[in-house]
Each structure stands twice: as C-alpha cells, then as structure tokens.
Amino acid sequence: MEVIRTEHLSKHYGPLLAVDDLNLSVKQGEIYGFLGPNGAGKSTTISLLLGLIRPTQGRALLFGEPVREDSFALKRRVGVVGEYQNIYGEMTAWEYLLFFARLYRVKEPRKRAGEVLAAVRLLDRRNELVGGYSKGMLQKLSLARALLHAPDLLVLDEPASSLDPYGIREVREILKDLNEQGKTIFLSSHILSEVERTCYRVGILQKGRLVAQGDMAGLRRRLSPEMHINVEFAMPPPLEEAALNQLPWVKSARWETPVQLRVILSADQDHRSDLLRHLTEHGAVPLEFNSRQISLEEAFMEITESNLASLAASEGISYQQAGRGEGL
C-alpha cells in the first residue's frame, strides 16, 4: 500500500518553480529518505504533502486520499517534525505535550506524554520551561510531540540538523524501533550519511524535480563514486607521484607532504586492496590507511546530470529528466 503518493505535483511562487511535476511514491513500512540540497524544494514538498499550502498543479495523496488543509482524519495518522524547533518557549515540556495530546484527542494524555518523554529521554526535564532548552532538546521534544498520537506515518524534515552525534544516534534508534513497529517514515535531509544509515529507499530532489528515486545502496555508490584515500608513512617511500598516476585504477595521486599521500581511486570497483598491495610491493609501509566519505552536498556539487542518468541506467532506478539541461 502506498502511504505517500504525489501525482504531477507542482508549486509556483510567482515566477519561481519550487516543486516541478513531482511523482513520488512511499510504501507502507518504508523509511524513505528525501534528499536534496538546501533550496531544492524538500520543505515545500512536505508542506504540500501535509496540505499546508495548495499545489499549483497535481495532487498529493496520503494513505490513498487527497490531502487538504482540513483533512483531520488523515492528519491524525501523521506525525511531523519540522525543520525548525517551533515550540512555545513559555510552556514546560509537559504542558506542551498535554496541549497537543488534547488537540489530537489522545486517550490517557498524561500517560502517553510520559511515555514519549521517556522515549526521548526528557522525562526528568518535563517541568522546565522549553524556552531554556538546547536545540537538541527541542528537537527531541518535537519528536516526542510527533509521536504523541501514535501516527502511522512519521514525516521528519532535517531531523539531525540540530543534534550532536549522540543525539543523532538516539533519534536513529528511535526511528528504527518505530519502523520495526510497522510505521512508515519519510525523512527529508541533505546529509547523505544520515540518510544512508537510516533509510531503505531515497528520492533525490533537485530544483524542485525528483531526479532520482531508488534503493539506498546503489544510490550511495553512485553519488560518491570515487574513493578518497589518505596514506601516512613512517618515512618517505620511494614512490613517484607520476608513476602512481599511471596506474589504471588511480584517478589522481598527490604527495601532500613527504610522508602523506592522497589518492583518488576509480569507482568501477573497490581498489583499496590493489593500492595497499602496490604500496607494500614498492617497499612503502603505511602507518595509517583511511578512506574519507564526501558529504551529499559535496557530491551534489560534483554530480552532473549525465552521471545521474548513468546512475539511473546502471542501478535500474527510475529517473526523470531534470529539465533545462543544467548540471545537477
């Protein structure tokens, strides 16, 4: 069953095309990653999905029904964590959750508020004014509010943006738990690593268009096709930079210092063992050998429309032509 579906969804703000002919599909039980750089139209898409703004064209369906501003029966099945922590600072966390519990007509509101606060580890801070909370605490309180009415679909817009690594891990665990309970999760983010660790499927939005949609593993490989390797030696090895650049699976190699080498490997397969073998064969003994991931934003900066097309072809994922022929 499709929990989220959009059909030719478009939104114009005057001359600005925020969302362009978006056809999205999220199935029940999925953790769907909605990727795109800042300004790609992710938040606008979420607003359209939730009926907060009206589409210029097309329609959005939740649980098979069209969404309107007053579709309360549908909204009752959705929990949302927005991009910003828009919380009433003059309330305590407890008052805040009880307010939303009443709004959603949650049965046994106090018990439920206690449960969700415990889940996000804020129970002991419940009687403090939210105005004094840190960004991370506010993010967790938002999550607690979104979970309060036990929704079938959880929509999260940049949930990790304000969290430290500890908080990110906590939220990730909560999401995994929820997913195991059968909840569908729609996670919008521009951080590829976070999406990769959490999501099964992803859709990539660029300039309002869904340029790619598919499973995470293939996409991840394509979006970050080159392996960046840093190697550190105990003493300068007898290796010429030019000779390294001659190797077929090396895209580039450069000595940063006499004992530090930076290598970019081809993406056709994993050449890390080839590099290690080559180094040891030439008498170079690495003290450290590590690979570095690039962020999604970096990847977007480098990605072109053609490699997304090839990505689509090679991975068998759906691909839509991003109009105007510009780089992605």
């Binding site: 403090e128 004014l129 840190s134 500890y166």
Partner: peptide, 13 residues
C-alpha cells in the same frame, strides 16, 4: 513563579 521554571543548570542535549 513561571520564571522559576526555567532550566537552572546547563541545558543537556
């Protein structure tokens, strides 16, 4: 009375 409900210690994420 309301002001006294502000978190006193450093906010912990």
């Amino acid at each position: 009375r309301r002001f006294s409900l502000r978190p006193r210690g450093a906010a912990r994420p």
